[in-house]
Write a protein that binds this DNA or RNA. Structure first.
Lengths: 215, 215
DNA sequence: GCCAAAAATGAACGTTCGTCAAGTTTGATG
DNA sequence: CATCAAACTTGACGAACGTTCATTTTTGGC
């Protein structure tokens, strides 16, 4: 059969896969995606260079997997803070604000921003379940006017990554963050005034990032 | 002296530069940006491989120059149609709608979309003077509520390119175009209802693209 | 303990971008 | 017109990359 059972083999393969992602994440953090070579990644994961291709079809595939771990972790940490909020619109606002701050402040994100379409796509899929849920909740509560939450989230991810790139490359000042969030909130159909108010609310701190222990 | 006069040398250099852009545009149209090699481009422009680097610092520089010619041409053709419009908000709406249709329908654009950040940046700079002017005119007329037109345009370019990429890769249906334009118009601070109305107005056809004759 | 099948290996391959020393053209000057 | 320095062109070249593949090693059911 093609899938007899989830046995020891599958577990070992998952461990190797995770080791590769961890190694790639470390090296790509130091040298950027293009600067990281497949040979170096394989060596840090204690494998031959060819073995990597048993787990990832290409270098791009591996880079995407790395990004997805970063994003999933961030989404969970955001949720830890926002699940005490009263206003569902504020939950969404806090989320995109935190993503913007992380993308521009965290070196590991900043060095990957020049692969915009890959990052935006990963963000759409990995953080989408959280963001789209929040958009829908806020719409049901009458705070937002979003008929197609997926579409709004898709546009928001690209604009968010683009804005982050503009900030890290100095084309936009970091002080533009507030205005960026206001305009992204405008896409939810909320009025400009309400968006300004929403973006100005105090934001509690995120919990620190836990150490990576694989998947 | 460094710049004695605009003589024959400068003219020949511009001809060479234009020939390079034209050659690169052709080959990148056929094979995409990554598929085009510097050697092939140089040969089609009748130069040695090394000569290209006298005109463009890198392959990226050349790709950007190609994009900029496409965008400038499109901006002029849009202007030809919209300068008869009464409503300044409609001018902007027609512009972004046309860009979206072109980016998803024209093969030459579609094949370059996977370099999102480069395309978006070129669009920001080359079409920005037109778009930002339109945003300001519509704001002054009380149709939009935009305090920072540059920022809105920056976010719009990235969202627009991202949406185009999603459509060409099949992640979004082409029928989502209307909703995309509505949400991009929302970023101008106009209400959701007004955005829907604006996006639904009839759009006259664009004049056909003139043949490329260099610069 | 045996064996077929799956996984790992790392050297080799084909391409790539960008560089460089050598040769050629240019145009102002005497 | 002859001269010459500066600017330009050239194409072979280097270094490095992602990926492949024949070979070896490991695996796990019998």
């Amino acid at each position: 059969m093609t899938e007899p059972a989830e046995g020891r083999v599958a577990r070992r393969q998952r461990r190797n896969r995770d080791a590769l992602i961890a190694a790639a994440r470390d090296i790509m953090t130091e040298k950027g995606v293009e600067g990281a070579t497949m040979l170096e990644i394989a060596e840090r994961a204690d494998m031959g260079a060819g073995t990597v291709y048993n787990y990832f079809r290409s270098k791009d595939d591996l880079a995407i997997a790395v990004l997805e771990t970063l994003m999933h972790d961030l989404a969970l940490r955001i949720e830890q803070v926002t699940n005490t909020f009263e206003d569902p619109a504020q939950v969404y606002a806090f989320g995109i604000r935190t993503v913007l701050d992380t993308a521009t402040g965290d070196v590991r994100w900043a060095q990957m921003l020049n692969r915009s379409e890959v990052i935006a796509d990963a963000m759409f899929h990995r953080m989408g379940p959280f963001a789209i849920r929040d958009l829908r909740l806020a719409s049901q509560a009458g705070r937002f006017e979003v008929s197609n939450a997926e579409l709004v989230w898709r546009l928001t991810t690209h604009a968010l990554i683009g804005a982050s790139l503009a900030i890290t490359t100095g084309q936009l000042p970091a002080s533009a963050s507030d205005q960026i969030i206001v305009r992204l909130l405008c896409m939810t159909g909320i009025g400009a005034n309400a968006a300004v108010e929403l973006a100005a609310r105090p934001r509690p701190a995120l919990s620190p990032e836990p150490a990576y222990r694989g998947a």
